[in-house]
Design a protein around this nucleic acid. Sequence first.
DNA 1: CAAATAGTTTAACCTTGGCTAACAATTATT
DNA 2: AATAATTGTTAGCCAAGGTTAAACTATTTG
Lengths: 158, 158
Amino acid sequence: MSDHEQPPLPPNSRLSGDALPPVEQHAQQYETVRNAHETELIEDYVELIGDLLRHRGEARAADIASRMAVSQATVSKMIRRLNELGLVTSRPYRSLFLTEEGHKMAETSRARHDIVLHFLRALGVRDNTARIDAEGMEHHVSDETLAIMRRFTEKHQT
Amino acid sequence: MSDHEQPPLPPNSRLSGDALPPVEQHAQQYETVRNAHETELIEDYVELIGDLLRHRGEARAADIASRMAVSQATVSKMIRRLNELGLVTSRPYRSLFLTEEGHKMAETSRARHDIVLHFLRALGVRDNTARIDAEGMEHHVSDETLAIMRRFTEKHQT
DNA sequence: CAAATAGTTTAACCTTGGCTAACAATTATT
DNA sequence: AATAATTGTTAGCCAAGGTTAAACTATTTG
């Protein structure tokens, strides 16, 4: 196929990263990430709506827009989607509410978020950084890792 | 604005998640994540191309397609983009190569990936899970956290 | 060396998640 | 009550990242 010779592995090749995983495993990694991306935004919206309801008693599209740093039109469109997915109920010009299912998703999402956030803090990451990192990481942490993070945080609590 | 009363904070309210961050901070979190998403895929492709070059001596579109679990057409399109971005050079029907800049990106990306992967392993996460989580997490870990992860891994090395 | 096979590209399409601009409805203010 | 301000919706646009199907190029093999 190729007449290139294999690049000789230097003795310190671990510094240059591990070997390539077998194709199927590698593919599965990327697939998992792609799938996570599909649900990620949905979860973020639902989680935020849950947070707003809990802390403010209501969740208005305008609040979501400013907290997400996104236009109201975008939020409006998104709410329609959440509606179709059966995650929220909405009457125009009224606060949003979560359905049973939406509530469950919000809970799960927030629990994950908190575990990651508290873990990062326990690790010694500064608060603001921890918040940002947690927001990005939360959708990519498996249950297994999550469990380990929770145990770690408990152990390293002040 | 709303006649809803604030939900009373139960004493164990930490279990129910932290307070809402101020709007600007909250917005910044989401913006950071959105920005990460834009570069994420690009970095994944470049990183994979770098890995293939290093381990195989060449990077063919077909290999990328199977390792990413994506159609060849998708890869082809993506390569055009990478070209426009000045990250790879490609002659039709030939192996890809990374430009200077592409090489740098691949290195950085791989370094980050490795730090996260080794950190997860050091934490006690099973290998396959660690791989999957690392793939998703790597683009969302700040330099600060990365540094902490690296130190942790060194300390907890067998 | 011709034919088969493998690899690559292109074209046409779809869905998501942004945007702006224009409009509609509600709520607040005077 | 009229007007102003805020909030929400709709329409039309765009780019990204997927897809399949078809065409084209290169490589391998009979």
